[in-house]
Design a binder for these strands. Structure first.
Length: 219
DNA sequence: GCGACAG
DNA sequence: ATCTTGTCGC
């Protein structure tokens, strides 16, 4: 399951098949635990982290990490095949199962409507949101500079996501449905997690944190 | 043929 | 993803 050895053509057709299983309506009861997912790759060695937060307080309560070489080269539209396997490794190390996961990448805002958030959402059978820092497909109008504003992204006549201002005067985030969440809720949960978001401060703190693959203790 | 299409 | 500098808001 985590040994993905596909050609680009096979990967692409698998996406078309999996895309038929994506559900674009919200099926969330209560979100008690929400998780952020990201992968860092250096010299073809990947490090993945899934941080589970208590949604009420946004305090971290669990983390799953993984370290392994990546094999699939990056190709636009096929990010899930590069980062997916190591994300599964990290997910298996979680002790607390999140109700909702936010990915660093697109959901249905994707050529075959199956970005990494949708792909992993279907495979994990969990609600997911795509939250990318750069747009992929589609076009959108202007959005105001104030935090919380957003504008829909269209591909032809289809709404595939929204450009969302997560903080005043900052670069927008590109939010899209991953799986089992509608766009309105996707935007809502992303903004809720950006409650005190400030990129420069986040970066400064991140620089001070020693990279580690051991599981921190929260108790 | 050219451009676009996360990380 | 990466790299660098300047600018602005709080």
């Amino acid at each position: 399951m985590t040994n993905w050895t596909f050609s680009s053509e096979e990967a692409s057709s698998l996406q078309q098949e999996l895309a038929t299983h994506v559900e674009r309506t919200t099926q969330l009861n209560q979100v008690r635990y929400i998780a952020g997912v990201d992968v860092h790759i250096h010299n073809e060695v990947g490090r993945a982290a899934i941080v589970v937060l208590d949604f009420a307080t946004l305090k971290p309560i669990d983390v799953g990490t993984a370290l392994r070489p990546v094999t699939f080269a990056y190709k636009p539209g096929l990010l899930a095949f590069r980062e997916g396997p190591i994300i599964f490794d990290a997910f298996e190390r979680l002790e607390i199962r999140p109700d909702l996961l936010i990915f660093d990448g697109h959901g249905i805002a994707h050529p075959r409507r199956l970005g990494i958030a949708s792909h992993l959402g279907v495979m994990l059978n969990l609600p997911t949101i795509g939250c990318a820092r750069a747009p992929s497909l589609g076009h959108h109008g202007n959005l105001s500079k104030s935090k919380g504003s957003y504008t829909l992204i269209f591909d032809e006549s289809e709404v595939i996501g929204a450009a969302v201002r997560s903080h005043d005067n900052g670069k927008p985030l590109y939010v899209s449905i991953g799986h089992r969440v509608d766009l309105t809720d996707s935007i809502k949960y992303v903004l809720a997690c950006c409650r005190d978001y400030r990129l420069p401060e986040t970066t400064r703190w991140a620089d001070k944190i020693e990279r580690r693959v051991e599981k921190p203790k929260f108790k």
